[in-house]
Simulated assay, not measured.
Amino acid sequence: MTAIDVKSFGKVAVLMGGDSAERPVSLMSGEGVLKALLSQGVDAHAFDPSERGLHELKTEGFARCFIALHGRHGEDGSVQGALELLGIPYTGSGVMASAVAMDKVMTKRVWIAEGLPTPKFRRLRRGEHGREVTREVPDTLGLPLIVKPAREGSSFGVTKVPGYSGMHEAVAFAAQFDPDVLCEEFIEGDEVTCPVLGEGDAAVALPVIRIQAPDGKYDFEHKYHSDETQYHCPSGLPEAEEREIQRIVVEAYRLLGCRGWGRADLMIRASDRQPFLLEMNTSPGMTGHSLVPRSAQAAGMSYEQLCVHLLAGASLDNPPAKA
């Protein structure tokens, strides 16, 4: 790996916390990133946008930002747009890619238009959450099925619905997080995730991680607090299967216009080993249980090296013209 002059970064803000439902996870991610950057000699400082105005980044002389925010106002293009206006380079995807990837329905539409595999779905907007509408959804998607908020992360508001009678309650639960609810075909099989680093033609996939959660329930508790969930990296998948997943993930990442880094979640259908894209995370977790650091480590990159590498790639959608 090429040596990086961390002093050239200047004063760095690690954006963490925020006001989304994923605030606790973001604080864990941010603290890990901050510690890693400081250990490498970076002039890094914690910055919580829910407690301080973003304009202070400019007045306090911050030269770039590491975005460790998750969910609304951190991963959806909002903070990215503010940083564009401030002219402060930031890690991860730009405004449009962040906004599209945050919306699981819009993401699916892009992928479907380009022929990439993703489970069948139906979107229920505000006003379509009544029993008559929700009860007919399994007629087209089958059972069991997955119900989740269209714009949320960390498995908040997600329910696996085994029968018709559970639909209304599941939709009402998801709607607590977002008025747009995504009902999705359930794919029975292996759950995997695959990170990507870089941009455009230079984007590369890291090793695939196969996830085994107790009873197949990879929820918030099993993501961040349980030691029972098993993460296999190397994945143990056939080599050709892993390569195909990496190919699909990189294509999915490029189609959304992502840059810097991201992580795609997929299911591999047991019946025919067909992978299906579920979503793209443009500001993945960086906690002790997080998956991008695990995959990077399998590729020979330490947590600290990963943080510095991502920070080195901080950029703007529209950098100011040079005089």
Score class of each variant (00 low, 15 high):
residue 36 A to K: 01
residue 39 S to K: 11
residue 62 F to Q: 00
residue 22 E to F: 03
residue 274 Q to C: 03
residue 204 V to F: 12
residue 119 P to W: 00
residue 270 A to R: 15
residue 165 S to A: 11
residue 55 H to N: 13
residue 251 E to W: 00
residue 196 V to F: 09
residue 116 L to Q: 02
residue 103 D to P: 00
residue 124 L to F: 07
residue 60 E to N: 07
residue 4 I to E: 02
residue 244 E to F: 05
residue 86 L to T: 06
residue 105 V to H: 10
residue 164 Y to E: 08
residue 105 V to D: 12
residue 3 A to T: 13
residue 62 F to I: 15
residue 291 L to R: 11
residue 35 K to A: 15
residue 25 V to E: 05
residue 191 E to V: 13
residue 276 F to C: 15
residue 282 T to Y: 07
residue 92 G to S: 06
residue 17 G to A: 03
residue 58 K to A: 12
residue 183 C to V: 06
residue 93 S to D: 03
residue 268 I to T: 05
residue 294 R to S: 09
residue 89 P to N: 01
residue 246 Q to Y: 07
residue 246 Q to V: 05
residue 197 L to Q: 08
residue 59 T to V: 13
residue 50 S to K: 12
residue 121 F to H: 14
residue 277 L to H: 02
residue 126 R to C: 05
residue 1 M to F: 00
residue 105 V to M: 03
residue 9 F to P: 00
residue 235 S to C: 10
residue 165 S to W: 06
residue 178 D to M: 08
residue 148 K to F: 02
residue 10 G to S: 05
residue 5 D to I: 08
residue 219 D to M: 05
residue 184 E to F: 06
residue 17 G to T: 10
residue 97 A to V: 07
residue 37 L to C: 08
residue 75 E to G: 02
residue 202 A to Q: 13
residue 237 L to Y: 08
residue 53 G to F: 10
residue 268 I to V: 15
residue 319 P to S: 05
residue 70 H to L: 03
residue 29 S to I: 13
residue 251 E to V: 06
residue 42 V to E: 10
residue 10 G to D: 04
residue 210 R to D: 14
residue 144 P to I: 09
residue 218 Y to K: 03
residue 237 L to F: 11
residue 185 E to K: 02
residue 12 V to W: 01
residue 73 H to V: 00
residue 253 Y to M: 08
residue 74 G to P: 08
residue 121 F to A: 02
residue 303 Y to L: 14
residue 315 S to L: 10
residue 31 E to M: 14
residue 30 G to D: 12
residue 257 G to F: 05
residue 210 R to T: 15
residue 289 H to K: 14
residue 203 A to F: 10
residue 307 C to N: 14
residue 297 Q to E: 14
residue 109 R to M: 13
residue 49 P to E: 05
residue 103 D to S: 04
residue 120 K to M: 01
residue 151 R to A: 11
residue 287 T to M: 13
residue 284 P to F: 13
residue 36 A to V: 13
residue 291 L to C: 10
residue 242 E to M: 12
residue 95 V to W: 00
residue 96 M to H: 02
residue 257 G to C: 02
residue 149 P to D: 09
residue 131 R to P: 10
residue 16 M to W: 12
residue 89 P to K: 00
residue 164 Y to V: 08
residue 249 V to D: 04
residue 171 V to Q: 00
residue 3 A to Y: 00
residue 51 E to K: 15
residue 6 V to T: 15
residue 40 Q to I: 04
residue 64 R to N: 02
residue 192 V to T: 12
residue 323 A to G: 08
residue 250 V to W: 07
residue 16 M to K: 04
residue 278 L to N: 04
residue 50 S to V: 14
residue 106 M to H: 01
residue 189 G to L: 03
residue 151 R to T: 01
residue 62 F to D: 03
residue 15 L to D: 08
residue 32 G to R: 14
residue 57 L to Y: 13
residue 153 G to A: 01
residue 191 E to K: 10
